[in-house]
């Protein structure tokens, strides 16, 4: 996977030099370890800054909304599914895009590593299977598979679903993964337990909206939480407002979420708000046999009627 970076730079340089695209969206080294940031390369020299490692977790489809120019975009499995969703929702045209597909082996969870290290991490180096974090007076190695982001360890679509270029041969998809054990655990709770569980889950929320901003699905010009006329939801820390925000945010992602994990990754207080979107994802799979972003030719379940749609809720 470490050879990907060289190949990405080569493809990006070629696309920019030939004028096939006006911009390539990828990752560059972040200012602190394990935090790569998006990079928008507009000429071959800038393309040389592109990198690839296990800290490229942000979903780059987020930067495509309503762009007019021709764009080359580096896409993991989940990014590519969100690009498909963007195309289906008319937020970008397929003809504008050159998708540089990256067969992904999962991204590393910076919190898992930080928790296991005794101090501040100042440098991280990685090999194909291991990451080594060093800081003042310590150096610790981890197997990558032990410190993957939770969504990556459950991922069953690691290879890009659409691509024009591929930086390496497709990787083997994970088989026999139980994706919804955590959702079933919440479903099994009594209403009182569930209320308590969500109250605890959301209690650290500071309403910074990082989860919304990192999400490629959240592209409304004015979000319902920012509206003031009418004000749909209170702006303070009242638990009922925090809860309203999180549930409505999740519902807006129904049938669209690809579980890319950007929301959880970007959260400054580490809330796992993916339990909400995963429940909706599971329902879409159970009720409609739907997984978001796998095909450009099938309309999502929430905008088509099929005679076989479940309708037991009608009394």
């Amino acid at each position: 996977m470490l050879s990907y970076a060289e190949k990405i730079r080569e493809i990006a340089g070629r696309l920019l030099a030939s004028g096939a695209v006006n911009m390539v969206i990828g990752f560059r080294q972040g200012t602190i370890p394990m935090m790569n940031e998006p990079h928008f390369a507009k000429n071959p020299a800038e393309a040389a800054k592109l990198v690839w490692d296990s800290h490229c977790g942000i979903n780059l489809a987020n930067y495509l909304t309503d762009r007019k120019e021709k764009i080359g975009i580096v896409a993991k499995g989940c990014d590519s599914r969100n690009i498909v969703t963007h195309i289906i929702e008319n937020k970008i045209k397929r003809e504008q895009l050159v998708v540089i597909g990256v067969p992904c082996q999962g991204m590393v969870d910076k919190r898992k590593i930080a928790l296991k290290c005794p101090g501040e991490i100042t440098a991280v180096i990685e090999t194909e299977t291991q990451v080594t974090a060093t800081g003042n007076g310590f150096s610790q190695s981890f197997d990558k598979k032990d410190v993957l982001q939770h969504n990556c360890s459950l991922c069953i679509h690691r290879n890009p679903v659409i691509h024009d270029e591929l930086v390496a041969a497709p990787v083997e998809e994970q088989k026999g993964i139980d994706r919804y054990a955590d959702v079933r655990a919440v479903e099994a709770m009594s209403p009182e337990q569930r209320w308590k569980y969500f109250e605890d889950l959301l209690s650290p929320c500071v309403r910074c909206y990082a989860c919304r901003n990192a999400c490629p699905l959240c592209y409304c010009p004015t979000c319902f939480v920012d509206e003031s006329r009418p004000q749909w939801v209170g702006k303070g820390q009242d638990p009922s407002d925090v809860r309203t925000f999180h549930f409505l945010r999740a519902y807006h992602c129904a049938g669209r979420c690809t579980d890319c994990g950007s929301c959880e990754r970007s959260c400054p207080v580490g809330i796992n708000m993916r339990v909400f979107t995963k429940k909706l994802e599971k329902d879409c799979l159970d009720l409609f046999g739907w997984e978001a972003g796998l095909s450009l030719d099938v309309r999502p379940p929430l905008d088509v009627y099929r005679p076989s749609d479940p309708n037991d809720f009608i009394k």
Binding site: P191, E192, Q193, R194, W195, Y197, F313, I314, K315
Partner: peptide
């Protein structure tokens, strides 16, 4: 969400 059963109802009319 943890609302007691019966408080939320759906119907098609």
């Amino acid at each position: 969400m943890g609302i007691e059963p019966g408080r939320l109802q759906f119907s098609w009319i």
